[in-house]
Simulated assay, not measured.
Amino acid sequence: MNILRVLPIAASLLLAACQGSATPAEAPLAGAKIGGPFTLTDQDGRTVTDRDFAGKYRIVYFGYTFCPDVCPTDMATVGQAMTLLDKSDPDLARRIVPIFITVDPARDTPPVLKRFVGAFYPRMVGLTGSRAATTAVAKAFAIYAGKGAEQPGGGYLVNHSRQTYLMDPQGKPLALLPTEQGAQATADEIRRWAS
């Protein structure tokens, strides 16, 4: 077989393979059973359901306002990522709602949540509710949360999973956001899966 005849065929096959890989990949969490309906209370004391966010991408994070390090760091990253998107792609940013759901409803009342989420991004929503309601929604999102040992003075920590979910406009999971890598990486991942 003449090698000069084979080379153009091989080159065209490689080119076709490369072009095929340019199609968007399926979102990493597509089809995962994460999320579901909920009824909670926002930072302004209003009753909110999952349906109130229909048609919007959602960044969903579970934590608590008394968290000494991880929660405020992750929320600062989400707020900074949203600020980056406000500047680079304001249309996309308007279609995203960052949501902080407490795993410590006993202390995270609406006024406490209002101060907390307001420190990170003006459109961030804080949600609380009864212990049963917040536990149920955490379970639906595959979040572990458990009260730690009492601290001196009566305080306590809450051990919890650390995931930052990007959900689609129907409330289905798309991807985990890399908040540990900073605001730019988080904004890039949002842009990758939200269109």
Rank of each mutant, 00 (worst) to 15 (best):
I190Q: 03
Q170T: 13
H160D: 11
T179G: 08
R162Y: 12
L176D: 13
E189C: 05
A175C: 08
V158A: 03
A175R: 09
T179H: 12
Q181V: 09
T186Y: 03
L166W: 06
T179M: 10
L174K: 00
Q170G: 11
G182F: 07
P178G: 05
L177H: 03
T164Q: 09
T179N: 13
N159P: 09
E189I: 05
I190D: 10
D168Q: 06
G171Q: 02
L174S: 04
L174Q: 00
R191S: 15
A185S: 05
R162D: 15
N159R: 12
Q181C: 05
T186L: 07
E189V: 11
P173Y: 00
R191H: 13
P169Y: 10
I190F: 09
T186N: 06
M167A: 03
L174P: 01
Q170K: 14
A185W: 04
D188N: 14
N159K: 14
L177P: 04
A183Q: 09
P173S: 09
R192A: 14
R191E: 14
K172M: 09
L166G: 11
Q170V: 03
H160E: 04
Q163R: 13
M167K: 04
P178T: 07
Q163K: 12
R192V: 04
T186S: 06
A187P: 10
L166P: 05
L176W: 02
L166E: 00
M167R: 01
N159C: 01
T186G: 04
K172G: 11
T164L: 12
Q170P: 02
R192I: 08
Q170F: 03
Y165R: 07
A185K: 07
P169S: 06
L177W: 00
Y165K: 03
E189R: 12
L174R: 02
R162I: 13
Q184R: 15
G182M: 08
L174E: 02
L177Q: 05
V158P: 04
P178H: 00
N159A: 09
I190G: 06
S161E: 11
P173W: 00
E189P: 03
T179S: 12
P173A: 14
T186P: 02
I190V: 14
L174V: 07
Q181N: 13
G182Y: 05
A183F: 07
G171V: 07
R192Y: 01
Y165E: 06
L174T: 03
L177M: 01
R192E: 11
E180R: 14
G182H: 07
A183W: 02
E180H: 12
L177D: 07
Q181R: 14
K172A: 13
R192F: 10
R192M: 08
Q184G: 10
L176V: 06
E189D: 09
P169A: 11
D168L: 02
A185E: 11
D188C: 11
S161C: 08
R191A: 15
T164F: 06
D188H: 05
Q184H: 09
P178K: 01
A185T: 02
L176F: 15
Q184K: 15
D188Y: 04
A183L: 08
S161F: 06
R191N: 13
A187T: 07
